[in-house]
Amino acid sequence: MKKALLQACVLCAGATAAHAGGLDRSGQGINLIFEEGSVVQFRLGYTDPDVSGTMLGVDSGDVAKDFFSPHLGFKTSLNEKLDFALIYDEPYGADIAYASNYPLSAGTLTNDVLRAKADTDAVTALLRYKFGNGFSALGGLRVQRVKASVSVPVAADYVVNTDSATDFGYVIGVAWEKPEIAARVALTYNSKISHDLSQTESSLLVGTVNSSSEIETPQSVNLDFQTGVAPRTLLFGSIRWVDWPQTVYDPPNYPPTSALVDYDDPTWTYSLGLGYQFSEQFSGAVTLGYESSTNEPVSNLGPTDGFWSIGLGGTYSMERAKISGGVRYTDLGDATADGAGPGARANFSGNSAWSVGIQVTYALN
């Protein structure tokens, strides 16, 4: 029961994640390390957000672009006490562009628009040591690559393009399991990762110059839990805290006095779900998600504030393979975005996202 149910739950809660914490895309999950034996896993989520607002009576257009969220993983048992997993994901990202007539797209010489694109790739090597009596400790190394491009035409036609930067962080955690009732609690800490970005900045004020900036992807804590509550029935959920105030991007030649990207508050994201095994081959799950709003002005490069969501997932189990699919609807929180002044703020409301995902886990032994 536990294996089939868990696959449905993981997909519904994770593979279709959308817009958690603005830039948060994968949730940095490590459930693969708890698979039995040796397995390979592939997961692909697709999200189609619908985000729009107005400033000074001008429509922003649908600013958030659709995106894919890939995940690849390999897990094996090195011996009775020690497990190893290698996980690839894209933990953070942004792809946003405004209409050409939007006030903040009003440049002097260029035909560019207010836009931002940021990509990250991460590979995590993870070890888990089992102490006995259900307790285990886990830890590992994460290598992460980041690259970004931002245009703010209203700020003297400002554009910045960074080179790729690759740096290291770490993961540590503890877990407790009781297989007889399909129970597990796992607490995981993900360190911040500091990147020194080489970049090219251009604007009407400085021309084109080469410079460098530091940016940190934030530290975070994940608490994941599950337990059987009735025959063939699993209750599961998670709490994720992300320390977004650590993430500040302040290129030296950006004209305004404020940073290009910064955050005032961390985010708390919650999920709770129920899974049921309908037969030996098929299991299903429903998941509710919630992220609290900060009720503070947000960046135009991420104009949402909190969300609630509902997801449905299912898993079909065969002799060696488990195939999961899921769909999720997310109601994105209303937000007020900073503008050129207090009277020129933008209002974003009535926004949402649809996500779908598929996951295949194949046992090698």
Rank of each mutant, 00 (worst) to 15 (best):
E180Q: 14
S238E: 08
T257Q: 11
N222R: 13
L234M: 11
T269V: 11
K178L: 11
S258M: 09
S213V: 02
S271F: 05
V185C: 02
T269Q: 08
A259S: 14
Q219E: 15
S198A: 15
A186V: 10
N210Y: 09
I193G: 00
P245Q: 11
P231A: 07
D243F: 05
D262H: 13
E214K: 14
A186K: 07
S271C: 04
N210I: 05
S191C: 13
V171R: 00
F236A: 12
L272T: 10
V221G: 03
A259W: 09
L197H: 07
L260S: 08
G173D: 04
K192C: 01
L205W: 03
S191W: 12
L234E: 12
T269D: 11
T166H: 02
S203N: 12
N190I: 09
A175K: 01
A230Q: 13
V229G: 07
S271K: 15
L260V: 06
A259R: 07
L205V: 13
D250T: 10
I215A: 10
E180G: 06
D264I: 01
P251E: 00
V229T: 05
P266K: 03
G228S: 07
S202T: 11
V185K: 00
K178S: 11
D196H: 08
A186N: 12
S194L: 11
D196Q: 12
V209P: 08
K178P: 00
L205H: 02
Y249R: 01
E214W: 01
E214G: 09
P231C: 10
I193K: 09
S202K: 13
P179W: 08
N190S: 13
T233P: 10
S202H: 06
E214Y: 05
W176P: 00
S198C: 05
Y270W: 14
D243E: 12
D243T: 02
T233L: 05
D265V: 06
T267N: 07
V174G: 15
V209R: 15
T247N: 08
S202E: 09
R232I: 01
R184W: 06
L223H: 06
V248F: 10
G275L: 06
D262R: 15
T166S: 12
G273I: 07
T233C: 09
I193N: 05
V242D: 03
Q199V: 01
D265M: 09
I193E: 02
L205S: 15
V261I: 15
Y170E: 01
K192R: 15
I172Y: 04
N253T: 15
T267Y: 03
R184G: 02
V185S: 09
S271R: 15
P266L: 12
K192V: 00
T257D: 12
